[in-house]
Design a protein around this nucleic acid. Structure first.
Length: 671
DNA sequence: CACCACTCCGTTTTT
DNA sequence: CGGAGTGGTG
């Protein structure tokens, strides 16, 4: 008898979560939180503001408050967690999951942009947005501006007409600060004020095209959500009825636009708690202002305010340096961090004679620490700008130290990935002229002019791929192949993203091979993209995630043979909210950190100072600040030799100087 | 009109 | 070092 077919007893697998207790185990909140944290966690209704210093348990408060709300019988699905960065969002949601278990799935959370994306897909029709809209990343926005610049008749760019990058930056600044273009130009880009009329025309065209083509840039996600909430009563009622408890992390990094969105979301119930630290406000370049924190109590009268000042992360020595750095800030909430932790070792100020010795010092020290038992993943190297780590990356590769770089140039921004994705975007949204433009120009014999004409024809023909087959000449064959590939990818029965991508890749492969000498490496990237696509049931989600939550690593990444043991290299911006046992901060040299770029105005310098504060407060125990002197700076043509001005105010007793010399070097630097 | 080879300029941080 | 603009060629 076949045992498989016999009348075996049946064991039923329950759907996940079905049986999880609605009320998790009772927690002793008073035991696990300090009095200030507890007070904040116990808020149920009404607006609240938590001013939280670095390492003071900010995320802990948010997470415990979510648990507490659920414990008190509130439906997890009525809780909404918002932050600006993906890193913070992941951290927050992950810890909620750990603390409250299965029900955390029903808590809605993510970045402002990803939440806006989801809401707009669902309710956007009310404001003329089809659910299939395409999200433009920064590069796409620049391409569109470029395209329009020609169309609007700004072909001959005057000598000093802003570059596309700058143009997009200006538009974005206007959106994020809710100001007219004029105002931004006058105050922050006065040197381009002569082009006011042209830029305004360009902006109009940019806005109009996006609406016509179902294109949405990062800022639009927020602008249009705000519009939806303001204009469409049913949607607003639905949305604010669903999420009755709103929590916002990193509030000092939100801008006026985001504050408006929060205000709208919370308009009916005012159950909104925001958490932030004015000393860690480092996103003013995109309109963030810690005034949002200051003005929150005005926006929501009756706001309860809590302050968290006990630091649980760092030793006293690290904290003393952090306090000294922020002491010099001109504008801040008064707030003094203290800790009950041990003194610990003083931060070490390392002087080297150049860039490469700096890199080699870091590498050598890392190896030493690992010998002493500090795992690689408990160490991080932080820097102001992504390229500051180039030399170090080379040294790490030489020594075979596995690392993961965060911030800077992303996988998704490489030309070949963008190319393939552009094909997929057309399949999903045939109106997307930005992608059409890119894709058409890849065809042999098609340039700017031909692409423009074809796009115009495509609109007339309601985006029928037939248009591509009608032309003659050199490009005829290429365009036919393109049409075939797009049709094939559009018509897959049971369309699955990997399958669709495969069809597009078959078409794109020869182009890739033709275009790049290093195509084998690029093919591997595209295969990686296919693997990512396997997790998605439809193109729409895949494409949206690719733009909103792209793989967090940069292109440079060395694979570790031994699982996850990896050193982290990160921009300071990308390191926010994280912590490591040992932290290296590179380039403490005037001109690099603070960057020459920030020298011009006081505000810029202040932000650099806060940035350093953020960097320093990432360290739990060990902190190395390195400064190479005698480095030639190509930008200014000068030799950088002055230690960062932020160290000027720091009392010498707070750090331990160390100078690095070559083995066998006859002379030494004085420290 | 497309494309290649050349020169010159400017160089952050994130969704 | 890459991107943008220029000028020549096919």
């Amino acid at each position: 008898m076949n045992p498989v077919n016999s009348d075996a007893n049946v064991y039923v697998l329950k759907p996940p979560n079905a049986d999880a207790p609605v009320r998790p185990l009772a927690r002793d909140y008073a035991q696990e939180l300090n009095p200030q944290q507890l007070a904040a966690v116990e808020v149920v209704d009404g607006p609240a503001l938590v001013i939280a210093g670095a390492g003071s348990g900010k995320t802990r408060v948010l997470v415990y408050r979510v648990a507490r709300l659920i414990d008190s019988g509130i439906d997890p699905a009525s809780i909404l967690l918002l932050t600006f960065t993906r890193k913070a969002a992941q951290e927050m949601l992950g810890r909620v999951g750990l603390l409250i278990g299965p029900h955390s799935d029903r808590v809605m959370g993510g970045t402002f942009h990803s939440v806006a994306n989801q809401l707009l897909r669902r309710y956007g029709r009310a404001i003329g947005l089809e659910p299939g809209f395409t999200i433009l990343d920064r590069g796409d926005s620049e391409d569109l501006v470029n395209l329009l610049r020609v169309q609007v008749g700004l072909g001959e760019t005057g000598r000093r007409f802003p570059r596309k990058r700058t143009i997009v930056e200006i538009f974005s600044k206007a959106s994020n600060t809710l100001r007219p273009l004029d105002d931004v130009l006058l105050n922050e880009y006065a040197h381009f004020v002569d082009y006011r009329v042209e830029l305004e025309a360009l902006q109009k065209a940019y806005e109009a095209t996006k609406r016509q083509r179902q294109l949405v840039d990062y800022d639009d996600l927020l602008l249009r959500l705000r519009e939806l909430l303001a204009v469409d009563d049913p949607a607003r009622r639905m949305i604010s009825g669903t999420w009755r408890y709103i929590l916002v992390d990193e509030y000092q990094d939100t801008n006026r636009l985001q504050a408006e969105v929060v205000r709208h979301l919370a308009a009916t119930h005012e159950n909104v708690m925001v958490v932030g630290d004015d000393s860690q406000s480092i996103y003013s370049f995109r309109g963030a202002t810690f005034r949002n924190i200051m003005e929150f109590p005005d926006q929501f009268p009756g706001t309860r305010i809590f302050k968290l000042e006990e630091n649980y992360r760092s030793t006293q020595s690290v904290l003393a340096l952090a306090n000294a750095i922020i002491e010099g800030a001109t504008d801040k909430y008064s707030k003094t961090l203290f800790t009950h932790q041990q003194q610990g070792e003083r931060p070490i100020l390392v002087q080297t004679v150049g860039e490469n010795p700096q890199s080699r010092f870091v590498v050598q020290k890392i190896l030493e620490l690992r010998e002493e038992g500090v795992p690689l993943e408990n160490m991080a190297v932080l820097f102001r700008s992504s390229f500051h780590a180039f030399d170090l990356e080379v040294e790490l590769v030489k020594q075979g130290i596995p690392f993961l770089k965060r911030g800077g140039f992303k996988f998704i921004e490489t030309a070949h990935v963008k190319d393939l994705v552009a094909h997929a975007r057309i399949v999903h949204n045939p109106l997307d002229n930005v992608s059409w433009n890119r894709v058409l120009q890849l065809v042999d014999g098609v340039g700017q002019k031909r692409a423009k004409d074809l796009i115009a024809q495509l609109v007339e023909a309601e985006a029928s791929y037939e248009v591509l087959r009608q032309g003659g000449g050199r490009s005829a064959l290429g365009l036919c192949h393109l049409a075939e590939a797009l049709e094939s990818a559009s018509q897959v029965e049971d369309a699955s993203p990997p399958d669709q991508l495969q069809r597009l890749l078959n078409y794109y492969y020869p182009i890739l091979k033709e275009q790049y000498d290093d195509y084998p490496k690029r093919i591997r990237d595209l295969e990686h993209l296919m693997v990512m696509a396997e997790r998605y049931a439809n193109l729409e989600e895949f494409l949206a995630d690719l733009t909103l939550e792209p793989p967090e690593t940069s292109v440079t990444e060395v694979d570790a043979p031994g699982r996850d043991e990896r050193l982290v290299l990160s921009t300071i911006h990308s390191a926010k909210g994280l912590e490591w046992h040992c932290v290296f901060v590179l380039w403490l040299v005037d001109g690099r950190f603070p960057s020459t770029y920030a020298f011009q105005d006081e505000d810029g310098l202040e932000e650099e100072r806060r940035l350093l504060y953020v960097a320093v407060t990432r360290a739990k125990r060990l902190l190395y600040l390195t400064f190479p002197v005698q480095v030639y700076d190509k930008i200014t043509g000068t030799i950088l030799s002055k230690p960062s001005r932020f160290l000027d105010d720091v009392d010498a007793s707070l750090v331990e100087p160390l100078s690095v010399v070559e083995d066998g070097d006859a002379w030494r630097w004085q420290s």
